[in-house]
Simulated scan of single mutants.
Amino acid sequence: MTCKTILAILQSEADAARVLDFTVPFAARHGGHVIGLHAEALPIIVSAPLGGPVVAFNAGLEAETEARHSRMREIFNKRLSAEGVTGEWRGYESVSGDSAISGIESARTVDLVIAQQNDPDADARSTANVEALVFESGRPVLLVPYTFSGRSQPFKRVLLAWNGSQQAARAAFDALPMMKEAGKVEVLTVDAPDTPEQDANFAGAAIAATLARHGIEVTMRAERSAGDLTHADIIANRLADSGADLLVMGAYGRSRLSEFVFGGVTRAMLRSMTVPTLMAR
């Protein structure tokens, strides 16, 4: 796999610069073509008796919507032009105005989707349903922390959270271009079961061997949860200790409803992301 077509989800002017600061240098390194996508909420058409001011109010909303589309498109085009990266713009209007939801169909035809992790303190209009994007697009989604600043640099070390699931397998192979760029990958297992066929300490040995055949320097680490530490806590701690600058993990091994009710690693990492995180399902 190569990252030749990249979809950048631009929810608002507040996150556009951050997403492009990450996406454009990344695309330049990988020879990628960037699709910028932004959605605005459809103005609600209402009328007042005898024409009244409500009609004029809706006309004003429509003008504001078009102005935001224009500003977002200009920001996108300027960034790509400045760095010599090819791209195209897709602007939508939808009932929700959610760029992630509007981007699901486009996401299914690209190599990689890049979006910003939601800032919990941001205005609701500035947040996108990235969970739906991860769950429904069928493509890897690379999430940029809302605390990210500066320009993206080549990755140096990748942490692969491995549990042997379909989702983890898809994430591992979708992330191969980034793993090759880094050259170093740590395969992390947490609470892997001991079975007659495999010792828990070697639960990630097969995927490690496969990655090594791609010329990647691979190490393995097995962790056990204890006390109040969740799997998400262990992954976060290992990210800090290892110095990894990219996390790769499968997403939603259970349904989203199950994760919402019982908690889960995916939702926890979406809330408390410290490094760019590639999720696939």
Rank of each mutant, 00 (worst) to 15 (best):
L10Q: 02
L10N: 00
L10D: 08
L10K: 09
L10C: 05
Q11K: 02
Q11C: 03
Q11T: 13
Q11E: 10
Q11P: 01
Q11F: 01
S12E: 01
E13V: 02
E13Q: 07
A14G: 05
A16T: 06
A16D: 03
A16K: 04
A17I: 01
R18T: 15
R18V: 02
R18Y: 04
V19D: 01
V19C: 03
V19L: 08
D21Q: 13
D21P: 04
F22S: 01
T23C: 15
T23P: 04
V24Y: 00
P25Q: 02
P25C: 04
A27R: 03
A28Y: 05
A28F: 02
R29V: 02
R29Y: 11
R29M: 08
H30D: 14
H30W: 03
G31R: 15
G31F: 05
H33Q: 05
H33W: 11
H33S: 04
V34D: 01
I35Y: 14
G36K: 08
G36L: 00
G36F: 06
L37Q: 13
L37M: 14
L37R: 06
L37H: 11
L37T: 15
H38W: 07
A39P: 04
A39C: 04
E40W: 05
A41R: 14
A41Y: 09
A41M: 14
L42M: 06
L42K: 08
L42V: 11
P43Y: 03
I44S: 13
I45G: 03
I45H: 05
V46N: 04
V46D: 00
S47E: 12
A48C: 08
A48H: 10
P49Y: 15
P49W: 10
L50H: 14
L50V: 09
L50T: 14
L50D: 06
G51K: 14
G52Q: 10
G52T: 12
V54Y: 12
V54S: 11
V54T: 06
V55H: 13
A56F: 10
F57P: 05
N58D: 08
N58H: 07
